[in-house]
Design a protein around this nucleic acid. Sequence first.
DNA 1: TTGAAAGCGATACCAG
DNA 2: CTGGTATCGCTTTCAA
Lengths: 338, 338
Amino acid sequence: MPTIRDIAKAAGVSPASVSRVINNGPKVGAKTREKIKRIIREMEYQPNANAQAINMQNNASIGIVLADLTDPLFAKMAHGIEKVAAEQNLQIFLNSGAFDRASELDAIEVLLEHRYQALVVHSAMIDDKTLIDFARKVPGLVLLNRYIKEIEDRCIWLDDKLGGALMADHIVEKGHQKIAVIGVDGILNNTRYRLEGIKAQLNKYPVQFEVEMLEQGAATYEGGEVAVQNLLARGVEFSAILAYNDAIAIGATSMLKAHGLSVPKDVSVVGFNDLILAQCIKPKLTTIHNPIEEMAMKATKLALSLSKNSDLGEIESVADKHKYVPVLVQRHSVQEIS
Amino acid sequence: MPTIRDIAKAAGVSPASVSRVINNGPKVGAKTREKIKRIIREMEYQPNANAQAINMQNNASIGIVLADLTDPLFAKMAHGIEKVAAEQNLQIFLNSGAFDRASELDAIEVLLEHRYQALVVHSAMIDDKTLIDFARKVPGLVLLNRYIKEIEDRCIWLDDKLGGALMADHIVEKGHQKIAVIGVDGILNNTRYRLEGIKAQLNKYPVQFEVEMLEQGAATYEGGEVAVQNLLARGVEFSAILAYNDAIAIGATSMLKAHGLSVPKDVSVVGFNDLILAQCIKPKLTTIHNPIEEMAMKATKLALSLSKNSDLGEIESVADKHKYVPVLVQRHSVQEIS
DNA sequence: TTGAAAGCGATACCAG
DNA sequence: CTGGTATCGCTTTCAA
């Protein structure tokens, strides 16, 4: 693999000139430039990005950490990030954490060791304190889909509480009183906030939320199945289910059917996220739209601008610009009852 | 950000010793080692991976290029790669191509510039010739989900022709004669091979494949919808649909329903890939299982071993180890007719 | 066991 | 315009 010096030698110039050509710098004669370009092509020279990075004291591409590649929400996030990266002609380096604290930490650390200046982090398992430390240390680090008060100007998050309230509101308005909720295990705050939203909203009506109505499990199709199975096994009565996400909702639907219960006739179901999945099944799922792609784009832009210009004081209220609002999408999995 | 020299100074030793400690090298006294470690922790020193890479002439992590992050198959691939990366305690750097020749090329190029030695590439838009060139140049490059004869020892692929044959076989055995096929646009060979498999198998029966039975479109849910719409609009008669993938199959199913046609009563549908999606819908989709995760794991291991040991001659027949076989999964979207 | 010093591949300043 | 060269942060002989 030829180096810049090999090229220089072959072209009969100095490495300095070659470097100028590589970086489209000025101060190179037209013929010299052409000649160097030719040699570069002929020798199939490829600049060593590591050597470049070591000099420029930074890494131009943008680094991403995602909690879990198998989460379907991931595709939308990644897509959003990709969009703005493409716009700016930047590469993205993605390092996944596989839903495990140690590997999430590892992923961030590796990105830092490579000196990426703009970091978009979607962490599910790392505690607030550690993330705050990282954020303080790295000006271009932005947290996607997570809210931490102390560094809210570095977070892009969804108003999960509102999301929960939206679900509760809708289902109560449709006349439901016995409402089961399927949440997920883990330290994610999303689930906690959504639950809070649900409870708070329910309490505004003469509908109380009882703990036995809550089932926790995995955030997957299978998780939805077992949750319903447990609910049924425990003999709790319900005419509606509010699920933590679409996959759970769909798993729940399928298990209900297996038990002879039809959706929405016998049980209404509400999902969350509004992934494409929600529109593929019958009945089409009523769910909460999660603008995660926009959020990802925003996070990326923010990380990029912070990494370049760490002292650019934000004037506007952070909450206005960084908190995104979920909206209810009515489809056919909820039925009005008397 | 402290450098190795800062640490050395603070510890009153030479950078050489610090380097040895960082790399768990030998030849460092126990107390010296401890002292250095302490200082490293205190000063929050993080080695500069770029500087390391420049010296070691290579990049230990493994690089991945994926054609399109939004493809659901991607999650499974990524997961497979991730699994073996985690086993070996390696990081993965993913660079996505967004289904566009230029960005796929870019993605590979960037990875090469960073001197990643092990590369797993899932390219959909780059032509054979270019990929062959890359493969010749980079010993640790492996093509996932693609077959190129000239470099078949560097490819991990699915027997798409067999996949097509499996579909055809099953549907004909169930008594179908009028069989529509939904393929996809683009230069992917998968679709071509599957189609060949379908045709070849059909021809073994007294069932001819007619061009008007073929519809091409996007490899998505929406693609399936419009394909069915076109089929119907063109007035072609069919009792079965073989789809390029599950998403298309599901989109097709939904559009059929919209036209008052029920699956599998009026029309049988067969998908491809066997993603989780296939089991979430009603009726559960009969499809071809695609062992993409295993394939991804194999590709990763291969890339890793090639990058380390480029002259390790493979003894076994490549085709036996690199060609994966699809298998039919019968569920409920196909009905026997007389 | 330790340190001095020569690279690794590229950039950029300073002369010419 | 062009070239020499110090430098970036780290690894790795080679001596001591």
